[in-house]
């Protein structure tokens, strides 16, 4: 098992992977897979060899779990909401909803009943997923160890699969509303005749606009992933220090994440709203 620092870090950054191993594959313990099987990867190289045909069970599980917490909590409060002075949980949920509503109202000028709930979901969900970083890095993997799971990475947003999953969904919405609001012709015109309205510059415009369009989901996903992943790596590095000095670095870093975690969730939400607002505007 992992003993060196490099192995420790690598271990903590490996997702629990369930994927397909081809027939004849030699596993880490030397055994040969007789036929194509779906199984949990025992090592990082096994996980890598599974290629595209694999799931990150921990990412899926924790993101769904956090999503359920969000839905359950807000649904619970919404079903019991009163018109009288809100107290406790309802007060808190109202603050969050009002906050998101304010952002959407300021940023989004179109008319679309989807945007505010979408923004709320993105904000709270990402916040909850990010907040798993506050849990010490060895707790859940240690528990997984005890249960016989070799790997366990609990923060879904440190997995690009999760962040790209969300940003591609946002991208699909951008395309959908661009076409819905502006029409196929309008959208094509926007892609080909801006910023330079001249037929000779259509290829140049197309290149520019498509690049700009593709940058949106890319920047959304990579920003969130990069921040969370880097923060996680630092937490793991701190965990390599002698146990009696860890707190000196771990505590400030965790406190810093009181800022980072909501901020990243907020940025993802605001940019989503801004992108969708641009998709609704026929300003060219």
């Amino acid at each position: 098992m992992a003993t060196t620092s490099a192995e420790y870090i690598q271990h903590h950054l490996q997702n629990l992977t369930f994927g397909k191993l081809p027939a004849g594959y030699q596993r880490a313990d030397g055994s040969i897979v007789e036929e194509t099987t779906w199984t949990l990867a025992r090592t990082s190289s096994e996980a890598a060899d599974m290629g595209f045909m694999a799931f990150h069970v921990d990412t899926l599980g924790w993101s769904i779990f956090m999503g359920l917490i969000f839905i359950g909590l807000f649904r619970f409060v919404a079903s019991r909401a009163t018109v009288y002075t809100p107290s406790g949980l309802q007060n808190f949920v109202e603050i969050v909803v009002e906050f998101v509503q304010g952002i959407v109202k300021d940023t989004f000028h179109g008319r679309n009943p989807l945007i505010a709930p979408l923004a709320l979901t993105i904000f709270v969900w990402i916040f909850l997923m990010n907040s798993l970083k506050w849990i010490p890095v060895d707790y859940i993997p240690g528990l997984g160890m005890a249960l016989g799971l070799d790997y366990f990475k609990i923060v879904p947003t440190t997995d690009p699969n999760a962040t790209f999953g969300m940003s591609i969904a946002v991208f699909a919405l951008i395309i959908y509303y661009s076409i819905k609001i502006k029409g196929v012709g309008g959208f094509t015109k926007e892609l080909t005749l801006t910023p330079f309205n001249h037929w000779a510059l259509i290829p140049f415009n197309l290149f520019l606009e498509v690049l700009g369009l593709l940058t949106k989901p890319l920047s959304l996903a990579l920003r969130l992933f990069g921040n969370m992943y880097a923060g996680e790596v630092v937490f793991i590095l701190i965990a390599l220090l002698p146990f009696y000095v860890q707190w000196a670095l771990n505590v400030p870093w965790a406190i810093f994440h009181i800022l980072v975690i909501p901020l990243q969730a907020f940025i993802f939400m605001v940019l989503t709203v801004v992108y969708l607002s641009a998709a609704h505007e026929d300003h060219h």
Partner: peptide, 22 residues
């Protein structure tokens, strides 16, 4: 992965962080 004093160190840090937050 070994269960060792690292876990202890993280627990100390976590406790301090929780105290700070409170």
């Amino acid at each position: 992965m070994n269960i060792n004093l690292t876990l202890f160190g993280q627990t100390i840090a976590f406790a301090i962080f929780v105290w700070f937050t409170m």
